[in-house]
Simulated scan of single mutants.
Amino acid sequence: MKQELVLITGMSGSGKSVALHALEDAGYYCVDNLPPELLLPFVQLEQQHSASKIAIAMDVRSAQSLPLVPAQLAHLRALDVDVRMLFLDATTEILVHRFSETRRRHPLSRKDDEFVRDQQRDLVEAIELERELLSELREESHIIDTSLLRSTKLQSYIKSLISAPATQLTLMFESFAFKRGIPVHADYVFDVRMLPNPHYEAALKPLTGRDEPVAEWLAAQASVEKMAEQISHFLETWLPDLNHDHRSYVTVAIGCTGGQHRSVYLVELLSQRFAKSWITLKRHRELDITP
Rank of each mutant, 00 (worst) to 15 (best):
H284T: 05
G255H: 00
T290E: 11
E46Y: 13
F87Q: 01
A253L: 04
Q272N: 12
I127R: 08
H199D: 06
P70I: 09
A215N: 09
H21T: 15
S175V: 08
L287M: 05
K16R: 14
M227C: 06
P183R: 04
G10E: 09
T208C: 11
P165N: 07
A164D: 06
K179Y: 05
A74M: 13
L95Y: 00
Q221M: 14
E212W: 08
A74D: 15
D145Q: 12
A19C: 01
E125K: 11
S14D: 03
H97W: 00
I279S: 14
G27C: 06
T92N: 09
T280Y: 05
R103K: 04
V252E: 00
A202G: 08
N33T: 07
A228W: 01
S160M: 10
I279H: 15
Q72W: 11
M194P: 02
E212S: 07
T167M: 10
Y29L: 13
A215T: 14
L39F: 01
R103V: 02
A222V: 15
P291R: 09
L195V: 13
F176C: 02
R103A: 00
F99G: 00
K282E: 09
P35V: 05
M58H: 13
S147D: 10
I158H: 00
H261P: 03
L133W: 15
V60A: 13
L34Y: 05
H49D: 08
S163K: 12
A222Y: 12
D241E: 03
R193I: 03
N243Q: 15
M85W: 02
Y28C: 06
S65L: 15
P35I: 08
A253F: 03
K205G: 07
R121L: 04
E140S: 10
L79I: 11
T257F: 02
Q44L: 08
T170N: 01
Q260T: 13
T152F: 12
K226R: 12
A71H: 12
T146H: 03
R98D: 00
L239S: 04
D187Y: 09
A19H: 01
T280F: 04
R273W: 04
L171K: 00
G15W: 01
A202L: 11
V124N: 14
R247F: 07
T9K: 10
P198A: 08
L149Y: 04
R110I: 00
P70T: 09
V264N: 06
I254L: 05
G258F: 03
D211G: 06
L23D: 01
L45R: 11
M11W: 02
K276G: 12
S160H: 08
L235S: 02
P240T: 10
E286L: 03
